[in-house]
Computed example of a mutant assay.
Amino acid sequence: MIPEEDQGPRWLRGYGDIEADISRMDEFAANLRNDLIKNYIPHLQLISDDVSVELPPVDVQFQELLAFLVNHRESLVNTSDLVHFYQNETNRFAIAAKKISENYATSDAFSAAQVKDVEAALNLKGFRDPDGPTTTPTGTT
């Protein structure tokens, strides 16, 4: 019997288990991190360049255009933040997968990571991967 603290939320319990191959978790972490570095980060500068284009001033009497540009700017900032945070959280996910792999690599096949261990790995506050991506949000003011 799985202890209550290690079970998922009651509303999600009927969906079945998620199984992960701990022996390949390190490979998954490395592939995820490499894909982030190779296929995602190189495009961040293009996005930054696009969202930082200065638009010409608008006559304040053209209220519809002014309102559009205010909303447009807000959308640019939100998009920029999402792009940045996707990178950070994907990197954190790869770090968590690697940590889980390291912690459970020598356990027997019937041992399972407790939910609190996985949550702790995914909630790495202040942990910084020295080899990880280090970009900052673009387009924010």
Rank of each mutant, 00 (worst) to 15 (best):
Y104I: 05
D59L: 06
E119A: 05
L69G: 05
S52F: 01
I37N: 07
R33Y: 07
N88Q: 14
A121D: 04
R73C: 04
L36E: 03
A112S: 12
A112H: 09
I41F: 01
E64Q: 12
H84T: 06
A105Q: 13
A109K: 07
L76R: 04
V115G: 11
K98G: 07
D50E: 09
P56F: 10
Y40L: 04
A120L: 05
L55M: 10
S75L: 10
I41K: 05
P57W: 06
Q114E: 09
A113S: 00
F85D: 08
L124Q: 15
Q114P: 10
F68N: 11
H72G: 00
Q114K: 13
V60R: 13
N103V: 04
E74A: 15
E102Y: 11
S52K: 12
V115R: 15
L124W: 04
D35V: 01
A109T: 09
V58N: 05
H43D: 09
N103W: 11
N88T: 08
L36T: 02
N34S: 15
L124V: 02
A105M: 14
E74V: 05
F68I: 06
L122D: 00
N34C: 10
F110R: 08
A94K: 06
N91H: 09
A97S: 15
N39W: 01
D81W: 12
A96W: 06
L124Y: 05
K98C: 01
L69D: 10
D108E: 04
S75A: 13
A96F: 02
L44I: 10
L36P: 00
A94T: 10
P42F: 00
A121E: 01
N71M: 07
V58R: 11
